[in-house]
Amino acid sequence: MDTKNKFKLFLPGITAEINDKVALIAADLREKTTVLGYYSTENRNVFLKTEKAYATKEFDSFAEMVNQFIADHSLENITKIAVAVPGPVIGGKSAPQRLPWALDADDIKNQTGIKEVFLINDLEASAYGLQHVAQDDFVKIHDSGNFTPGNAVLLAPGEGLGEAALFWDGSFLRPFATEGGHCEFSPRTNDEVEFYSFLQKIYGIVSWESVLSTGGLFNVYRFLRDVKRQVQPEWLTQEIEAGNFTKAIIQGAIDKRDRICTMTIETFLVFLAREANSLVLKMKATGGLFLSGEIPVMLEQFLNNSVFYKNFIISDKMENVLKDIPIYLVKDEKTIINGAAIYAAFYNK
């Protein structure tokens, strides 16, 4: 992949001298663990100097966590903070449901004394982070060789379902957030109608996040177990009780250890392909589909089989478009925090 051509992002401040040799903090904010990184800018790039993970719920506010990070590393002259938030950001504020507190950029400024604070959706940040990904961390899933520059999309099932897009303006890609993961899931087959009914009793409104996430993977599994009467093996019962379900079910499918493992992963792949298809078509993403997040990385060997791609190109009239969409797996685990740093460093002049 030629990342220089495909990830020429709109960064209007990248050539401004005022943005050179700047010290900033970026954060990948999550429900359980938040990672903070100290970055500096040099020669139109960002460089991670040090980072530390904190238990999110041990702090009464995000600002308290930042101040602790600054104290832990004796940091000075920080001029910017970028916070990648797992939820919508509107008017410099966000209140993600999975976090113990809300965020307000002005409050963070006042409580940390840092003059520029940016809140950015985590998948939008991840889209910016694609520019920082090494060539070896892009795994080609499909490339017809018939590439047409255009919009691109990013799909990331993990703790939630993140979706972002990059608008191609003819010269640059401009990332933006979506909340597509909260759109309502729609069944296609009789078995999927059963699955929808199963989830509706639990959630009321069944979103795609209820299907494509770590919790969604478990939903697929327990539907197969409880409704389709597939047997839960004893070893998997132990893994579930130990809190290791996601890794265990995927490894069980890799090892072909039990039928329910294979069925769970194949079903999940069908749903992943379908939502990828929808996202690509809605955004007319001829520039590519990029899969990232915890689950796709673990599913790498399955993404290269026929189940995913055959279901991705199913369409009423658009198969000729879908077959030429390049598909890549992004294995870099730091796209969110790196992207937040890039945004804070270079988006503003």
Rank of each mutant, 00 (worst) to 15 (best):
K4S: 02
L9E: 00
I18V: 13
D20A: 11
R30G: 07
Y39W: 01
T50C: 10
F62I: 06
Q68A: 03
A71N: 10
D72E: 03
L75I: 10
P86W: 01
G92V: 04
P100C: 04
W101E: 01
W101I: 02
A105N: 15
A105R: 08
D106H: 04
N110L: 08
Q111I: 05
F118S: 03
E124W: 04
H132K: 15
D136H: 06
K140P: 05
G145D: 05
G145C: 04
N146E: 14
P149H: 00
N151K: 10
L154M: 12
A156D: 14
L161E: 06
L161S: 11
A164K: 15
F167P: 08
E184S: 11
R188I: 11
E194T: 03
W208S: 11
V211T: 07
L217M: 07
D226Q: 09
D226N: 03
D226W: 02
R229S: 05
T237F: 06
Q238P: 00
E239Q: 08
K256T: 14
R257F: 00
I265L: 15
F268D: 04
L269A: 07
L272N: 09
A273W: 05
A276I: 11
V280D: 15
G287T: 08
P296A: 04
N304V: 03
N305Q: 08
S306T: 15
F308N: 12
F308A: 14
I314N: 07
S315W: 15
K317S: 08
K317C: 14
V321I: 06
L322G: 07
L322Q: 12
I327R: 04
F346G: 03
F346W: 03
